[in-house]
Design a protein around this nucleic acid. Structure first.
Length: 701
DNA sequence: GAGCACTGC
């Protein structure tokens, strides 16, 4: 094995760790930080007083890095070196180096906030700024201040925000470890392209006809763009004069591609053949494609954003950050010197692109995170002042508190309730954990467990929506149950129950156009939730009640009732004259039932008067995805709660928050809300401006 | 009558 760059810095690193409690390591791609840092500390005796924990944002990374380290140390995986990810704990009493996802470490710190078993914690890939990593950084800071003992914390980051992280951690030292990348030549566009697909296409053809061999990786925003580019590129390449250049294979690569098609990018191409891979940001971090010499970077990415004032998500095309741009470029230099073609000008790179990606914490609903923090038994924690590297807006925190109050997780003073404490133990969004607890009261826990598990996997159940899959869809709607008129939650329940009756036959999934992997995941989640619920309820739950039962209407009734309590923060009322709905738990928004829903109108052509929804998402219009009909008399107590809500009290009365109560629908002033636009701190305007430009450009094509 | 980037407990 060639010497990894980081090994030359061993003395320096150890010495710095020795003298400081926190160290930031800037480890460029290929530096070996993920596999070597833990081993260095192990060699220097840091495992004598505890174990070394290394977090990864992704499951596959935790497993593969652990496997590699076990190999290098010549030990059996699961012995001295192990890993822990959801559903799988391969560690033992002998484990000294433990790789784990950051989500698992957060779970661990729920039962042991001091993380007493660790002598070192390494937060790897912190520059990705996942919600979990950010939460962990906050907790680490607090832990260091409190626990005067010898816990060492190492944080690996990117060049562009190393100083910021250092400042956050009391100006701790920053060490830079070079990577083992070959040089990558960066080539910018001379002007902003009118259509980035066209310019990607043109660049790809140029490379193919003029540049020596080497695969081409093209970064685009999503499935649509990828398919467009693939078909155009095929057309162009195959119309080139025969013998004028080498053969070509063109492959799409995105998340909704079935796994068997994804792995095609890992097989070796035939000789004298160039591969073009049109990919989403899945190829930025999650999958590494070998043989890439040329990268074409469109400069855009699809990003999910949350608007705390409306409770609405949107999936927007935004400009990438400089960190992302560099990450993409780096994909060209893994095997030999490469080139990166940026479909934007160098001026755009300098002046338009943000340095770092807007952290997830500023783009998501924080109900789950706030509940998590409140559930930790930490007397000195004040949620509104919790020390995050990039604090969320107070609006976003207030939103989280309101939501938690509506589902009884916190009381009117903002203190966590017993229900809230139980909810935090379940690895679920708050609405879903609240539903489970309520279902337990109504004797329909089995059904609720199924629905909740199905929802956790929902997006991976159905195969990527193909444009010409009409036949398939009809096929599916003929064969799958319809939710008995109550909506999507009931349908999800019925689907799983049918599969259970078929003894989890994978062929049944295939026949009904359901992704096998997704359904197996549901089974795992359900099992895990069963175990946790059994523990909470002291072991007397009937978690399989549907197996003996033919007539389920009574259970549907109770289940819907439980869903209504769980989704008290996601409630909507139909408008009088049409099938549009108005949201009740947030500032009122007019929304529609998503067309993919199985909710059907009654004989008068009307939908149910009241529904709960799983998610609000704006695509072409604002939609509710996954809706379930509820009864008006279940809704009334919730509306009362909404009306009497007092945010000042919820936030502990200490904060000088300006807004008072949620505007209930009956007394909501119909003012235009110029001040309720998406707030993302200073990033907001840049993002919006970038989006405007993008849309303008797209419109011109 | 629309369509969704990527993760994770």
């Amino acid at each position: 094995m060639a010497q990894l760059p980081i090994l030359q810095f061993e003395e320096k690193i150890i010495e710095t760790v020795e003298r400081n409690q926190v160290v930031v390591i800037i480890g460029e791609t290929g530096s070996g930080k993920s596999t070597q840092l833990s081993q260095m500390l192990y060699r220097r005796g840091y495992t004598k007083s505890g174990i070394i924990g290394v977090t990864q944002p992704r499951r596959v990374a935790a497993v593969s890095v652990a496997r590699r380290v076990a190999e290098e140390l010549g030990v059996q995986l699961g012995e001295e070196v192990g890993y822990a990810i959801r559903f799988e704990d391969r560690t033992s009493e002998r484990t000294r180096i433990k790789y784990l996802t950051d989500g698992v470490l957060l779970r661990e710190s729920l039962s042991d906030p001091e993380l007493g078993q660790y002598s070192v914690i390494i937060l790897d890939e912190a520059h990705e700024r996942s919600l979990n990593t950010d939460t962990l950084m906050g907790l680490m800071k607090r832990l260091i201040r409190m626990r005067n003992s010898h816990l060492k914390v190492l944080i690996t980051s990117a060049t562009l925000d190393g100083d910021k992280v250092s400042k956050f951690f009391f100006d701790c030292p920053v060490l830079t470890v070079p990577g083992k990348l070959y040089p990558v030549e960066i080539l910018y566009s001379n002007e902003r392209p009118k259509s980035y697909i066209e310019s990607c296409l043109k660049t790809a053809i140029d490379i193919h006809t003029k540049e020596p061999e080497g695969d081409v990786l093209i970064f685009l925003t999503g499935q649509d763009d990828i398919e467009k580019l693939v078909s155009k590129l095929e057309e162009k390449v195959y119309s080139l004069e025969e013998g004028s250049c080498m053969d070509a294979i063109i492959l799409p690569l995105h998340g909704s591609l079935p796994p068997e098609l994804q792995v095609r990018v890992f097989s070796c191409p035939p000789p004298n053949c160039r591969r073009f891979i049109a990919a989403t940001n899945i190829a930025e971090t999650s999958l590494t494609v070998d043989g890439v010499v040329y990268v074409i970077d469109s400069g855009y990415v699809k990003q999910r954003q949350y608007n705390p004032s409306t409770g609405m998500y949107s999936l927007d095309v935004v400009q990438i950050s400089k960190v992302q741009a560099n990450q993409r470029a780096g994909r060209a230099g893994r095997t030999r010197p490469g080139k990166c073609y940026r479909m934007y000008t160098s001026m755009d790179y300098q002046e338009e692109l943000l340095d770092v990606t807007v952290p997830e914490i500023q783009r998501s609903s924080l109900a789950g995170s706030v509940l998590y923090l409140k559930s930790l038994d930490l007397p000195d924690i004040d949620i509104l002042k919790f020390d995050f590297l990039d604090p969320p807006t107070s609006e976003s925190l207030e939103d989280a508190l309101k939501q938690l109050y509506l589902i009884d997780a916190i009381d009117e003073n903002g203190s966590i309730t017993r229900i809230g404490q139980t909810m935090a133990e379940l690895p679920l969004e708050p609405s879903l954990s609240r539903t489970l607890i309520e279902a337990n009261e109504y004797g329909c826990i089995s059904q609720a467990l199924t629905v909740v598990a199905m929802l956790s996997a929902e997006t991976t159940l159905l195969p990527g929506h193909r444009k010409n899959a009409d036949k398939k869809r009809k096929h599916r709607s003929l064969n799958l149950p319809d939710g008995s008129g109550w909506g999507d939650h009931i349908q999800l329940l019925q689907i799983f129950e049918l599969w259970d009756q078929k003894n989890y036959d994978v062929n049944w999934c295939k026949d009904h156009d359901l992704q096998v992997r997704g359904m197996l995941f549901v089974k795992d989640v359900r099992k895990q939730l069963c175990q946790i619920m059994q523990k909470i309820a002291k072991g007397s739950l009937d978690v399989w009640s549907f197996r003996n039962q033919k007539e389920s209407q009574a259970e549907y009734w109770n289940l819907r009732k439980a869903l209504c309590v769980g989704y008290a923060n996601q409630l909507a009322e139909r408008m009088i004259h049409h099938n549009g709905y108005r949201t009740l738990s947030f500032k009122p928004q007019v929304v529609q039932v998503h067309p993919s829903s199985v909710m059907k109108p009654d004989e008068d052509g009307k939908f149910a008067d009241y529904v709960v929804y799983h998610e609000l998402i704006t695509t072409s219009r604002p939609y509710m995805r996954n809706v379930c009909a509820v009864q008006v008399d279940w809704v009334m107590p919730i509306l009362n709660k909404v009306k009497n809500l007092n945010v000042n009290k919820l936030s502990g009365g200490s904060a000088d928050l300006t807004s008072g109560t949620i505007e209930g629908i009956k007394n909501s002033p119909k003012k235009e809300d110029a001040n309720t636009k998406l707030t993302l701190d200073g990033h907001e305007n840049k993002i919006l401006a970038a989006r405007e430009r993008f849309l303008a450009r797209r419109g011109k094509k």
